[in-house]
Design a protein around this nucleic acid. Structure first.
Length: 481
RNA sequence: GGCUCCGUCGCCAAGUGGUAAGGCAGAGGCCUGCAAAGCCUUUAUCCCCAGUUCGAAUCUGGGCGGAGCCUCCA
């Protein structure tokens, strides 16, 4: 079974065959750096982080490019509001973005280019478009002539005539056709600008992604990704300006992730219903956020809510508790040469799920079944004298870590992770570890005295606070409910 | 208005023609001084209607409900 992906361009799942065998070029639209990132950005970047990881796991040599758009209307506006330079503003939020992504556990892309460092490439591309008769200069601006490109709107599957019917040229605009879009904008006083054949100016939105994509991946490459909201106009315009310049297909596979909703509504800056990554990280571990996002298919909408994140925490806790128990068990069991195929079976199911358009939700379902199998194996009586059971457990455990790494999950030490979750929960309850340990001591004494009434009373009191006491052979421990 | 998409158990969520994964919550059981965890068992015919088919949650048509894009947005 080979990899199949949903290609927005074709509107269906198709077999993935890279342009150059064994190699994949992938470009993902990064952020415009004028504000902190929200959970929607987290989703897009986590999704493509997984795609990057899975392609590498599948044996491809992947070049992953994710840009920073660091020149733009909103940056200029925000910088003016704060009375700092655009460069200061963009540098501040590039750093914030890098911090957020690092905390979310994302792998670094191969290249992270900035628009402002590719002005030469942008100008060259615009010149090429003018030379091809696909773009025209107009009083310091340069526009792409959508009429000149027959395939315009092939990605978003719209109708140019109908769109033109609703569009208008505003007074003062220098376009020939209301649907034409800017490739280059003349600088207004005080704006960042660069020298160009059309005078001082700056790139329009869209052109930087074409220029940087081609610069690092060639004039045609395999994958271009981003959020669904970028399909029109951003990606549509990228296709137009790139293919009109090179006369080659720009991108083979267009991949788009679904939105993060709040109360069934899209989270967006204009609605003001967004949560920043750094705020959420105050309450939830990064891996919980990742688990939450991967528990749905990347193209489906997901609803962001406290309840859903708590469920993600419960699910991830089940994995970590299983992995912790397995690690302890295996450390005590003798190794052997016996081979077990339990791990390979799990991995085959995992691949099948991921090969089907990166179905992480199904893959995680298989992993849940795997953890149940591990727990069942661990419940085997006299397990230490059953090398074949130990071999199965070891195979599963090893596979878990391997597959987890592909999803960016189970990357922490289980004991540490569980402890940290408990400590965080305890802090929320305003109870100290010393207090809990005191109660455990008292209860231990009561149990020694066979005063089970008092013993149970202590446990019930703690349970009412949200703390569970767990009796096991080694003593009594506790966890947050 | 145009163009996309979605509606699966109390909740989350896979499944795009072959007879409904998984998780959380619930019920019963094993285990336990009692618990917890874990394990076992158990809970849906897929928004409605009509059609195509030997067979549909999956295809077609109609309806109802929800979302997105068409302006910046992951």
């Amino acid at each position: 079974m080979s990899l199949r992906v949903y290609n927005t361009l074709q509107g269906k799942k198709v077999e993935f065959q890279p342009l150059h065998p064994g190699k994949v070029g992938m470009y993902v639209c990064g952020v415009t750096v004028y504000d902190y990132c929200h959970i929607g950005h987290a989703r897009a970047n986590i999704v493509f982080d997984i795609i990057f990881r899975y392609l590498k796991y599948s044996g491809y040599d992947v070049t992953y490019v994710r840009n920073y758009t660091d020149v733009d209307d909103k940056i200029i506006q925000r910088a003016n509001e704060r009375e700092i330079t655009c460069k200061q503003l963009s540098e501040e939020f590039i750093q914030a973005f890098d911090e957020d992504m690092a905390r979310l556990g994302l792998q670094l892309p191969t290249v992270q280019p900035k628009a402002t460092e590719h002005i030469d490439h942008i100008i060259a591309l615009v010149e090429r478009l003018i030379a091809n008769g696909k773009a025209y200069a107009s009083d310091g601006d340069v526009y792409f002539a959508v009429d000149s490109f027959d395939d315009y709107l092939k990605l978003s599957k719209r109708n140019l005539d109908e769109m033109q019917a609703g569009a208008r040229i505003a007074p003062g605009e220098k376009k020939r056709n209301p649907m034409d879009f800017a490739l280059w904008k003349m600088a207004k006083p005080g704006e960042p600008s660069w020298k160009s054949p059309w005078g001082e100016g700056r790139p329009g939105w869209h052109i930087e992604c074409s220029a940087m994509g081609m610069e690092y991946l060639g004039e045609s490459f395999d994958i271009h990704g981003g959020g669904k909201d970028l399909i029109f106009p951003h990606h549509e315009n990228e296709i137009a300006q790139s293919e009109a310049a090179t006369d080659k297909p720009f991108v083979k596979y267009w991949l788009h992730n679904g939105f993060v909703n709040v109360n069934k509504e899209k989270m967006s800056k204009s609605l003001g219903n967004f949560f920043t990554i750094r705020d959420i990280l105050k309450s939830y571990d990064a891996e919980i956020i990742r688990f939450f996002i991967l528990s749905a298919h990347y193209r489906s909408p997901i609803d962001f809510s406290d309840q859903n994140l708590k469920e993600a925490r419960l699910g991830l806790t089940r994995f970590y508790e299983g992995l912790h128990a397995a690690a302890e068990m295996l450390a005590q069991c003798p190794d052997s040469d016996i081979q077990a195929d339990d791990g390979d079976e799990l991995e085959a199911k995992f691949r099948e799920a991921m090969d089907d358009d990166f179905n992480t939700a199904l893959a995680i379902g298989h992993l849940f079944e795997g953890v149940r199998t591990m727990n069942r194996l661990m419940a085997t009586k006299k397990i230490r004298k059953k090398p074949e059971v130990i071999a199965s457990l070891r195979a599963l455990y090893t596979t878990f870590l391997k597959l987890g790494a592909v999803l960016g999950l189970f990357v922490s030490d289980p004991q540490q992770w569980l402890k940290q979750q408990n400590l965080a929960g305890l802090a929320e309850l305003n109870i100290s570890v010393e207090q809990v340990e005191g109660w455990i001591e008292e209860r231990l004494q009561a149990r020694k005295d066979k005063d089970f009434a008092r013993s149970d009373e202590i446990r019930d009191e703690l349970a009412a606070k949200g703390i569970l006491l767990l009796d096991c052979a080694a003593g009594t421990t506790w966890k947050i409910k």
